[in-house]
């Protein structure tokens, strides 16, 4: 497996992790599946987690795409 293929696979995985993090952030924020109760999160913590997960997700997506479309 050459380096370019590894980059594509890892880039795809990283971008997918980013998308999943953002989706999870919104599921958590809107308390779908009662996640806030399961994780015993206060309102302040919910906003903090939303912010952290979105930043994490966006950075992962950009980094993943850079790897996937490596020149």
């Amino acid at each position: 497996m050459d380096k370019r293929k590894i980059s594509k696979v890892v880039g795809l995985a990283q971008a997918s992790v980013g998308v999943a993090a953002i989706i999870f952030a919104f599921i958590f924020f809107y308390n779908i599946f009662g996640l806030q109760g399961v994780l015993d999160a206060s309102e302040t913590h919910v906003r903090l987690y939303l912010w952290v997960l979105i930043i994490f997700g966006l950075l992962s997506i950009i980094s993943g795409l850079l790897l996937f479309y490596e020149q």
């Binding site: 590894i6 890892v10 880039g11 990283q14 992790v17 980094s63 850079l66 790897l67």
Partner: peptide, 19 residues
């Protein structure tokens, strides 16, 4: 798993050749 993916991706980006 997520941590491992991030670390591998980081290393690959850091080792990217400068064209």
């Amino acid at each position: 798993i997520v941590g491992a993916i991030q670390i591998i991706a980081g290393v690959l980006n850091l080792l990217a050749p400068d064209h």
